[in-house]
Simulated assay, not measured.
Amino acid sequence: MNTVVSHEADGDGRVRVSLAELIALRSRVARLRLPPQDSRAMRVGNQSSRLYGRGMDYAESRAYQPGDDVRRLDWRLTARSGRLHTKLFQEEREGQLLILLDQHASMRFGTRVRFKSVQAAGAAALAAWYAVRAGERVGLMQFGGCTQLQRPRAGVHGALDVCGAIAKGDRTASVHRQPLSEALHHVIKLRHGANRVLLISDGQCSDELARNRLLEMMRHTAVRLLVVADALELISMPAGHYPIEHDGQRRTLVLQSIRQRESFQQSLGAGQARLAAMAQSLGIPFRVIDTAADPLESVSALLCDRGGRR
């Protein structure tokens, strides 16, 4: 896919995704100090494997065995030990990250700085740039509207493809509600080749069956979760009158008593609380960020396997 930045189609970065901003996030990731990569292991879930063969990277040497390729003799160790030794090389496997991005209508909401959908889009773009900088392929599946898989692709073009698809998905209005379990089942059935999955959602679409789907996915894939929430979903607001706009119509929300405010917050934040609790019970590393936060630290922490639970 050739990504072209169109000024007319580009968003404002607050209520609509700005493709230019998604692409510009590459420079922020470029300044990060990435952790050293373990080239001898490919992590799948909680398992790692060492693969030896005619690969690119030297792994170790062992005593010569009949049938070994004489071109791979370790002459230095042979000279020191007086016995023939053969160099073993590991097969290099490229990591692949698949980003699952929630595009439900509930994501198009925000009371601080930007909509949840815009915050999630920025986090997804950061993840894409992080992955390709770390030498991984990156792909994308958006759900909640048009469910379409973009298979992992290597290099800058892979990240650009993801950014372009995110911007296009943001312009597609949808009222279709897709349970998270259904989206996860769709991913499991597809042969996408990814060994890591980053799910970005506000949790409003999470359902009871999603827990089983996540368990199934975790058998073969390392799963990480970024929960995007609005400030109103995380804390009880002070008493007052709050103007709300929806579909071009303005309303005033009146919150006075403590019970009224707490009930409103718990109702509004039920989705993100449910999804975070599910991740915690399954041992999935996750982070919760609001719409005013900088997502870079959370994304990099999750993708370098330092993802703690908050």
Rank of each mutant, 00 (worst) to 15 (best):
P152Y: 02
P152G: 00
R153S: 13
A154E: 11
A154Q: 05
V156A: 10
V156I: 15
H157F: 14
G158H: 08
G158N: 02
G158T: 00
A159Y: 01
A159T: 07
L160S: 08
D161I: 04
V162D: 07
V162N: 02
V162K: 06
G164T: 01
G164C: 11
A165E: 14
A165V: 06
K168Q: 14
K168T: 10
G169T: 06
D170F: 00
D170M: 07
R171N: 11
T172I: 15
T172C: 13
A173P: 07
A173F: 14
S174I: 00
S174T: 15
S174R: 03
H176D: 13
R177L: 12
R177V: 03
Q178T: 06
L180M: 14
L180I: 01
S181I: 01
E182G: 01
A183V: 11
A183Y: 00
L184C: 01
L184V: 08
L184R: 01
H185I: 04
I188N: 08
I188E: 06
I188K: 14
I188V: 05
K189D: 05
K189L: 15
L190Y: 04
L190H: 07
G193T: 07
G193W: 04
N195Q: 11
V197K: 00
V197A: 07
L198Y: 00
L199I: 15
L199H: 02
L199S: 04
S201T: 15
D202Y: 06
G203R: 10
G203E: 04
S206D: 15
D207F: 12
E208A: 12
E208P: 02
L209N: 09
L209F: 09
A210Y: 06
R211D: 04
R211P: 05
N212K: 13
N212Q: 14
R213Y: 12
R213I: 02
R213G: 12
L214R: 08
L215R: 15
L215S: 12
E216C: 02
E216S: 09
E216P: 02
E216M: 09
M217E: 10
M218S: 15
R219I: 06
R219W: 09
R219K: 15
V223R: 04
V223K: 02
V223G: 02
R224D: 08
R224Y: 07
R224T: 13
R224M: 11
L225N: 06
L225Q: 02
